[in-house]
Design a protein around this nucleic acid. Structure first.
Lengths: 181, 181, 181, 181
DNA sequence: TTTT
DNA sequence: TTTT
């Protein structure tokens, strides 16, 4: 009985980071900038930039890891998700991310290369999963997990003392952590 | 390299019409009203209503057919599609529809009944297909065809003289027509 | 009590057509293509293109007329609107358009020129109207009419015999027609 | 050159909190829940709830304060914004909010009352500002500031020792703080 | 950290 | 009529 949707068009601040869970699920993280320009009261043009934490899983993660790079302009559609975690003092802290389920590279195709792009278009994967428009041709890159469960970042669920060298910072995704499903 | 997305919140003008193709695919059609109120130059409040033709396929079609009814308020997400057809004079004519891929019933749950609702919540189907948020729990009702192909309305592709009693009107979906795949 | 929203990313099929009403209101029309690629049952990659009729008014119309051109990739946000008109036989006919209220040029800035672009960035207008995010810096190009009234295409409201040479086709926007407000 | 858009349909977790800045600008805060249901690996139906921090300004703030209440189902459209602030240890901390620019009450009109609703429809304000669809009738409740500047939460900009009893927590909006414009 |  |  609800809708949770985010639509962004922006530029990557850095190259994406693609990792794999022990079970083999791909996950990618990157930050995306959206900018607004406006004139302040003195008539000077100002820019305000917003940074968004993007995460994607599985096939979409791999596509992002392969084809996106720092500076690339993309369209992202996803859902808001706020993860709770504990800092070193045991305080609850929260991080909000956009869990992407669709991505579109924007601009010219010949500009969709950069950092590691191999020619051959979008080769190497088949976009036949059909999540987006059941009963329609496929549009863009969608996330395609057959059984959807967003893995909880596992750091917050197991005792922190299990870590050999406890990191009292925001839990970055750890590819050695098992997805709990 | 493109995005084609429609988001509507409105009310059904009539009960939805659920049909099946010979191959067994469910398809539903209904019209959805969105209304805007504004004040004209004389300060009088005016209402402008827009009517949208909605079509949905397969599982989503069946859910719409079962649970929606005239007057129901819903959220719809889909894609624009313009079908071309010929009228009796052979002129090209066009009809624009929204091919829904997500639907949300709005308002109270106890008001989500009406025309044929069985108690038991959203019982009768398993929402485990995972199109929307690969890697996440499922949200709302999605269209779930594993191999997405939007059936072309076949009327425009076969000779009209095949029809016993040719109807020189906009080709309404004919459940006797085979989906071309 | 409703939402009527369209979000498109696509390419212009032709240069936009900018006109002015007798009262001086700018109006622009262009068609925008969105394309999906999919594999058919034989595994061949197919493309399906959808064409959308875009209309924009006033400041946004002028920006589109100045900076857009055939082939340009843009983001459009707007509302669906279906206009009713009569063909020569007096039959009701309908045309669905997207009334744009926001537009974003995509791709590189140095590619945002073409057909008549003058350097100087987005010069010539001040983006200080604040429709989009009241209380926030302005984002992108918005439609900025202080008193919003969508002009009805006047052809359908006055007798067709008033036209010297009646055109029995879909009523294209006529800049000699007065906006009815 | 970017888009930052959030679309939510959900229910308020509490009554909204309406405050005013010293300069008289209304600001409202509330949390909105979106929920997804899914089946876990054991076939049990699970619900995952996401909480979103909503903020709105000026006219939209006042409408939210007047007409919304705990449990109410609404449609919200807005932009993501992450505020940075310092906790007691001087660590940077971040809070992500949705700055609403459009709101729609969902469900029955006779259910749109509760906590302080006066009959008379949406009386008490004129929705004639025209931000959303320049050139169109107005849809829903929009934020209408003529000069858009999102007030920065001022707590993070002035010395914390100014507070008589420093609260080493996330800076909640303080209506005694002046908006910096 | 990106873009304009 | 665009793009890939």
């Amino acid at each position: 009985m609800s809708v949770n949707k985010v639509i962004l068009v922006g530029n990557l601040g850095k190259d994406p980071e693609l990792r794999y869970t022990p079970s083999g699920a791909a996950v990618v993280n990157f930050s995306l900038a959206t900018s607004e320009t406006y004139k302040d009261r003195d008539g000077n043009r100002q820019t305000k930039t917003e940074w968004h934490n993007i995460v994607a899983w599985r096939q979409l993660a791999e596509i992002c890891g392969k084809y996106l790079h720092k500076g690339k302009q993309i369209y992202i559609e996803g859902a808001l998700q706020t993860r709770k975690w504990q800092d070193r003092d045991g305080n609850d802290r929260y991080t909000t991310e956009i869990v992407a389920n669709q991505m579109q590279m924007l601009g010219r195709a010949d500009e969709n290369g950069g950092g590691g792009y191999q020619s051959g278009g979008q080769g190497g994967y088949d976009n036949t999963s059909g999540q987006q428009y059941g009963g329609q041709p496929q549009q863009s890159y969608n996330n395609t997990a057959a059984q959807p469960q967003q893995p909880q970042q596992p750091q917050q669920q197991r005792p922190q003392q299990q870590r050999p060298a406890p990191v009292y910072e925001e839990p970055v995704f750890n590819p050695d952590d098992e997805i709990p499903f």
